Amino acid sequence: MLAGVRLYLVTALLARLAEEGVAVAAVLLALDRAGSAAEGAFVLTALMAPHVFAAPLAGALAGRVRSPRVFYTGALAGFALAVEALVLLVGRAPLPVTLAVALAGGCCGPVVSGGLSGLLAVLVPAGTARDRAYALDAAVFNAASVTGPLVVTVVTGLASPAPAMAVVGAAAACAAVLVALLPHRRQQDTEERPTLRADLMAGLAVVWRTRELRAITAATCLAFLGIGGLTAATVLFADAHGSPGAGGALVTAFAVGALIGSLAVARRPVPAPRLAGLAMLGLGLALAVAALAPSVTWAAPLFALAGLFDGPLLSATLRIRADHAPPRLRPQVFTLGAGLKITAASCGSAVAGLCAGLPAPLVLLGIAVVQAAAAVLYAVVRSPRTRGTAAVPEAFTP
Rank of each mutant, 00 (worst) to 15 (best):
G311M: 02
Q188T: 14
A322C: 00
G339S: 12
A55D: 12
S262L: 10
A291K: 07
E191W: 09
A49S: 09
A246H: 04
Q371M: 15
V87G: 11
A46N: 05
G105V: 06
A299T: 10
W298D: 03
P163Y: 10
R209S: 07
P312V: 12
V380A: 14
G109L: 15
R185W: 03
L7F: 02
V140S: 09
L213F: 12
A202S: 15
V381Q: 06
F396G: 05
A80C: 04
V289S: 08
L158Y: 08
L263H: 09
C174A: 15
G366N: 11
L308H: 07
L318A: 07
G40Y: 00
A62D: 11
L76A: 00
A159L: 10
G311Q: 00
G148R: 05
A121V: 01
P56V: 01
T45L: 11
A18V: 02
M201N: 04
T386I: 03
A26C: 03
A180K: 12
L31G: 15
D189C: 03
V10M: 11
G307D: 03
L225P: 13
T11I: 01
F309V: 05
W298H: 09
P273V: 08
P361Q: 12
T11E: 01
L263E: 05
L292V: 11
G59F: 09
I227L: 15
P125W: 04
A300K: 06
G247P: 14
R211Q: 13
A264Q: 13
G366H: 12
L81R: 03
V122T: 14
A198T: 14
L88E: 10
H184W: 14
A164K: 00
V90S: 13
A138Y: 08
E20C: 06
T11Y: 05
A58L: 08
A34L: 15
L313Y: 10
R6M: 13
G277L: 09
A338M: 02
A135D: 01
R321F: 05
A300R: 14
R92T: 15
G59Y: 00
G74V: 13
Y378M: 06
I320F: 09
L287D: 10
V151E: 00
R6Q: 12
V24K: 10
W208P: 01
S349F: 07
D189F: 05
L119C: 02
A23G: 03
C108N: 09
A246Q: 11
L158E: 04
A121H: 00
A171Y: 06
V112N: 09
A306H: 10
E84K: 07
L283P: 02
V363G: 03
G148H: 03
M1S: 15
F237M: 07
L281I: 14
A180I: 12
T73K: 05
V52E: 07
P331R: 08
L9G: 05
A218N: 05
